[in-house]
Computed example of a mutant assay.
Amino acid sequence: MTMPQLSVLDLVPVRSGQTSAQAVAASLALAQHADALGYTRYWFAEHHNMPAVASTTPPVLIAAAAARTQRIRVGSGGVMLPNHAPLIVAEQFAALEAIAPGRIDLGLGRAPGSDPVITQLLRASGTAGDVDRFPSHVQDIALMLQPDGATVQFTSGGEYGVRATPAASGAPQIWLLGSSDYSAQLAASLGLPYVFANHFSGQGLERALDLYRTGYQPSEAHPEPVTFLTVNAVAAPTADEAEARALPQLRTMARLRRGRPLRALETVEEAVAGLRADADAEEQQLIETVRGNWFIGTGASVASDLSAFAARYGVDEVMISPVAGAYADEPLDAPAGPLQTLEQLAR
């Protein structure tokens, strides 16, 4: 089987003893390595107020990554649109397109990216919190990013032009992200590229892809449906090391699903010790359930599994979230585990 194109999804993980500055430095170093290793794109997610995640502001991280890379596409996976005014998103990504022409992706989602309290704080101004207007906001952003811009029609008559930047020569590629039937159907109706967030749950993947492909309405920019899938992956020289490096994130996911307080990501040693000392049957079961949707093993075995996965769902690109944890003696400002995964899978 043919190996699909590979891309990277980064949540900027923060491990115990690590500062935000060190976590960001490690992620930016990983973006540089992904560029050198031939990966297709590098996306930053949007999450808020989480002890183990520093990817709060994708546009800022994208700008920093774009300045440190040469050829790889950089973007958001995604910007959670209901948290932001559409004009602000359009302006930010028009500026990014000017910084790195032809290399910017704008992935848009409608989930909050945090808990209800943070959602209320993000939407306190009342400018963008209407989730029901998500489809029209997506279309507004697409128009404002075009060289001709968008036109506001006044009820009293007359028009007003709105452009995200004065003299655009290009525009970011817009992707719709989601993990539900809604997002698949909306992407299809708008003729936009679509990404199913398989790394998040994996539930409903086949149905979402079928709805997207069968309901797709061709657009000028995309006459055919365009899609790829996301996965969690850990690759290492040995299967045992890969399993060990996966454990910190697996325990974090188990805590999340049980509604337990979140904390900075454990080191491999802390995760192993914690599993032996305090894991109960429910946590063990949750870890096994989550692990069943991940790709963990040697570089060769994970590459083979990714090829089979891509062939099964008819995609030629897979975006991996390299969820490998770190050992306690590994540098705090370097992406040891994630980089190892990227190197193991690079063609």
Rank of each mutant, 00 (worst) to 15 (best):
T151L: 13
L143Q: 15
F154N: 04
V195Y: 08
P166L: 12
H199M: 13
T155H: 05
Y160T: 06
T214F: 02
G202R: 08
Q217W: 10
G215T: 03
L211T: 00
G178V: 02
F154L: 04
R163N: 06
A187Q: 04
N198S: 10
Y160V: 00
L192M: 12
E159C: 10
G215C: 03
A142V: 15
Q203F: 14
G157L: 11
L192G: 00
Q146N: 15
W175P: 01
R207M: 06
I174Y: 10
I174G: 11
R207Q: 10
V152M: 14
I141N: 12
L186N: 05
A171H: 04
A142F: 09
A171S: 13
L209I: 06
S201L: 14
T155G: 10
A150Q: 04
G161V: 13
A164F: 05
M144S: 01
P166F: 13
L143F: 13
D181R: 08
S180M: 12
M144T: 03
P166Q: 13
T155A: 12
S169F: 09
D181G: 07
G158L: 09
D181M: 05
N198W: 05
T214W: 04
M144F: 09
A171C: 11
E206C: 00
D181F: 07
F154C: 03
L192F: 12
L176C: 12
G204S: 03
E159D: 11
G161W: 08
T165P: 07
D140K: 14
G170N: 11
L186Y: 04
A168Y: 01
I174A: 13
A164D: 03
L145E: 01
Q173S: 14
P172V: 11
G157W: 04
A208E: 02
D181S: 13
G204A: 05
D181V: 03
G191Y: 09
T165H: 14
F154P: 01
D140V: 10
F200H: 01
G215R: 01
A167P: 09
V162E: 09
L186A: 01
S201T: 14
